[in-house]
Design a binder for these strands. Structure first.
Length: 826
DNA sequence: GATCCGAATATACC
DNA sequence: ACCGGTATATTCGGATC
């Protein structure tokens, strides 16, 4: 018996003699590549109808067999087992089958049996099944004991694996080991045509901390040392494959590489009949279809950072877009090399592929820089991806491409074993459509603020409000009762689907609240550890736990969820409304004036009371809260500003600015934090807000008057006037043609690649056309000073500051600077 | 042809 | 299609006078 300590990085399964075996691709402690071969049962569950003779049923099921996919698909065994399913104890049939790929065909036969009530877990991926049942989880260290395959055996099996060890596992046991740091190559290609299948790959770059390389067949003099020339595109692809094989990375990282770099490489490789056999088993790059396809390399984890950022991480970013450039700027303080890619593409077309040497040199450096950025981004995001993968126990490939609902669901699924719970099925197409049709339920409460500038403000908020409600009220689909039972938790009455409803939740802990509670406890531990001994891995772990906890409420209301329950989502929101209202009352009863509240937070004026008085009240409120619910002090603020809505006489919700004791300013909802306003309007509003909070309103007024004057005098540079609006759908799909749609059309005419999702930039130029969109132009089409003065004064700058000044009863006319009024005139 | 108002749209908050 | 509802503001586009 031989032993190795290893860490799983990737999983897949293959057939040996018609039955499936798992391959775990990983790394040994000392850095050798290993492929661990292991087995696990392929099975699903049959739920029998009431009063079924289970033994007879089992015998009948055992006899199922059919020809399927060129082999005999058959049931190996059917065991009667006591299981839990959504709060019920049931007897179910565990149906073991010859191959996981046969489950679908076998269940089709079994579901026609009159005894069959339903089938479950037919939609569990075999790798997920393996991880659940064998508990060999990604990125944890294990000792594998077993027999290593000899060279001759591998040859006989035709397993020409690019690994150091192939071992047949007999026992795999967990072991404590230090952090793992993967060997990663970031890569990026440059082409002469953006569309896959049309053009050629001109260059390809690879980078990490040690490696910086550009491979190209476009020759030029005085090439930087990183550049390696090859004869042609075919050689470029071959050299790439050769380099990766020699370098032996654990992972390849790209940016949008799922849908661009790898499909492009594969397409070109196919053209030359080159096998892009990067897979550790010698397999080609494969594609998994989806809204954006995924590109997979067996055993060599391919991570598309764009997908991770797009699906998960973008919500924590400030960047206006999630382009490589914007994200790199924000996360690693580095940016792309500036070149005019459109110009280069155009020149390449016009000159039949010839570029000036200087241009090529710069193009190569640009290509390299993209890989360097991707590599640095990987370093930055790796802890987050790794911790998420460890928490939800799904392989890196899946986790790095997961959406919030995927993560929540995987976390649930991987924890159900200890509850002896059969996994609920994914909803079918019709079910999804039904769910989509259901009306929305009432969500959070937002209190209307009274506009004004306030002093000495306290802000309380509930710690992880919704997750703690789910835990404290034991909320799950099957703990809901419409009638009070003994030991049930009462939820305040609320309206749901047009009717007054009252729900009760039983106290027997359901698995989702239980799993969530554990998640919250783990997070508490992580936070405590972090305080003692900070590390970026701990912070990433905290991020992973927080992400999962916060997405659970939304998961209940998501139509694609296995554990969908709109009633639960509505009940959670109703409980939240109840407690925020109660908190407002409690605070007001103590003599504080509450001027604003949104979902889980309350803002109040201290008035004659002290911060200590507020903290005493906080303690008192906490003593009255059920379960794990807790109200926290968010902060005390020196000043706060609330404004009126533009239409009507009401205070504007979700719009405020606060300044703490240190002078730090927190702005929410105002135009200055929105990307669809021009910088001039945003910056002006920012200055005004700051000055107002610093009690320098007169300076603010003068500042606006100065800006308006500059606008009138055509002194404002165009880049301050660019408005950015995202094209959210296909150009043709718009019913209302807004300015950005017109500009997108224009860009398309100019041959610029415009797709939905693009951030369209435009300037409103001077002109007599009535509609704004008729004056919307591409920034480069507007000469300096040729902007529409009135538009920028009346539609951009003034609306952004008007509501702020109206708090001080200063009108638009004053802002325009005609009357030159001073604040003290009022 | 000016004006009013609702729908469509984009984006933010929690 | 890929977690939820609440909310504001802007522009269009049709109805109305």
């Amino acid at each position: 018996m031989e032993k190795e300590v290893f860490i799983p990085l990737d999983y897949d399964y293959i057939d040996i003699n018609d039955s499936a075996v798992i391959r775990i691709w990983g790394k040994t402690k000392d850095g050798r590549r290993i492929c661990v071969i292991d087995e696990t049962d392929a099975y699903f569950w049959l739920i029998p109808k009431a009063k079924t003779d289970l033994k007879k049923y089992a015998e009948k099921v055992k006899k199922i067999q059919l020809k399927h996919a060129g082999r005999l698909a058959r049931v190996l065994d059917a065991k009667i087992k006591e299981k839990n399913f959504l709060g019920e104890k049931i007897e179910a049939l565990q149906v073991f089958v010859s191959n996981p790929k046969d489950i679908s065909a076998i269940k089709d036969i079994a579901k026609e049996f009159p005894e069959t009530e339903g089938k479950k877990e037919t939609d569990i991926n075999f790798v997920t099944r393996y991880i659940i049942d064998k508990k060999v989880e990604p990125l944890e260290f294990y000792v594998v004991e077993g027999k290593k395959y000899e060279k001759e055996e591998l040859k006989a099996l035709k397993w020409n694996y690019d690994v150091d060890i192939v071992i047949k596992a007999e026992k795999i046991s967990p072991i404590q080991e230090k952090e793992f740091s993967p060997k990663v190559l970031a890569f990026d290609i440059e082409t002469d045509e953006f569309e896959i299948g049309k053009g050629h790959i001109l260059m390809l770059s690879l980078a990490n901390k040690q490696v910086q390389k550009v491979i190209t067949w476009k020759k030029f003099a005085n090439a930087p040392k990183e550049v390696e020339f090859v004869k042609n595109e075919e050689e470029l692809i071959k050299r790439f494959v050769e380099f990766v094989k020699e370098y032996k990375p654990d992972m390849l990282a790209g940016y949008f590489s799922d849908a661009f770099d790898l499909p492009y490489l594969r397409m070109r490789a196919d053209e030359y009949h080159i096998n892009l056999n990067l897979g550790l088993d010698g397999s080609n790059v494969t594609f998994i279809r989806g809204a954006i396809p995924s590109s997979e390399i067996r055993g060599l984890v391919h991570i598309d950072l764009y997908k991770f950022i797009n699906n998960i991480f973008a919500y924590t970013l400030q960047s206006e877009t999630i382009s490589l450039n914007d994200v790199a700027k924000e996360l690693i303080g580095d940016k792309k090399l500036e070149i005019d890619l459109n110009k280069i593409t155009k020149e390449l077309k016009e000159t039949k592929g010839e570029l000036k040497e200087a241009e090529l040199r710069r193009f190569a450096l640009y290509n390299l820089q993209d890989s360097i950025l991707t590599s640095k981004l990987f370093e930055k995001l790796w802890p987050n991806i790794a911790e998420l993968s460890k928490v939800v126990k799904e392989p890196l490939f899946e986790t790095s491409r997961a959406t919030y609902s995927n993560l929540v669901e995987h976390n649930i699924i991987h924890n159900l074993g200890r509850f002896d719970e059969i996994i609920q099925s994914r909803p079918k197409f019709d079910q999804i459509n039904e769910r989509k049709m259901r009306p929305k339920y009432t969500g959070a409460f937002v209190k209307e603020p009274i506009p004004g500038l306030y002093e000495n403000i306290g802000v309380f908020d509930f710690r992880s409000f919704y997750p703690n409600i789910i835990v404290s009220f034991n909320i799950a689909d099957y703990t809901i009762h419409e009638r009070k039972e003994k030991n049930s938790l009462e939820v305040p009455e609320f309206e749901f689907e047009g009717k007054k409803r009252k729900f009760y939740f039983s106290k027997d802990k359901a698995f989702i609240p239980q799993i969530l509670q554990e998640l919250l406890e783990k997070r508490k531990q992580t936070k405590a550890e972090m305080k003692k001994n900070y590390s970026s891995a701990l912070e990433a772990k905290d991020y992973a736990l927080k992400t999962l906890a916060n997405a659970t409420y939304g998961y209940f209301g998501f139509f694609g969820a296995r554990y969908y329950s709109l009633e639960c989502a509505a009940a959670i929101a109703a409980i939240a409304r109840h407690y925020i209202h109660k908190t407002i009352e409690d605070i007001e009863k103590q003599g504080f004036k509450v001027m604003y509240a949104d979902t889980d937070s309350v803002m109040f004026i201290l008035g004659k009371k002290s911060e200590n008085n507020a903290l005493e009240l906080l303690k008192k409120i906490n003593d009255s809260l059920p379960g794990t619910m807790e109200l926290e002090l968010e902060n005390f603020y020196k000043r706060g500003l609330f404004v009126m809505k533009r239409t009507g006489e009401l205070g504007a919700k979700k719009k405020y600015a606060l300044m703490d004791e240190k002078g730090n300013i927190k702005i929410r909802g105002f135009e200055s934090v929105r990307r669809d306003r021009c910088d001039l309007a945003k910056d002006t509003q920012d200055v005004v807000l700051k000055k107002v909070l610093e009690d320098k309103s007169e300076e603010a007024l003068k500042y606006v008057q100065k800006i308006v004057k500059e606008l009138r005098e055509k002194k404002v540079p165009n880049d301050q006037l660019i408005i950015k609006t995202q094209l959210k759908k296909e150009i043709e799909a718009y019913e209302n043609i807004g300015p950005h749609v017109v500009v997108a059309k224009r860009m398309r005419e100019l041959g610029l690649p415009i797709k939905e999702g693009a951030l369209i930039e435009y300037v409103i130029a001077k002109g007599n056309e009535k509609l704004i969109r008729e004056r919307a132009k591409l920034p480069e089409e507007v000469k300096a000073g040729d902007y529409d003065i009135d538009y920028y004064i009346n539609n951009q700058v003034l609306p952004a500051v008007e509501s702020i000044f109206s708090v001080f009863k200063i009108s638009v006319e004053d802002l325009k600077g005609k009357k030159q009024k001073q604040l003290k005139d009022f």
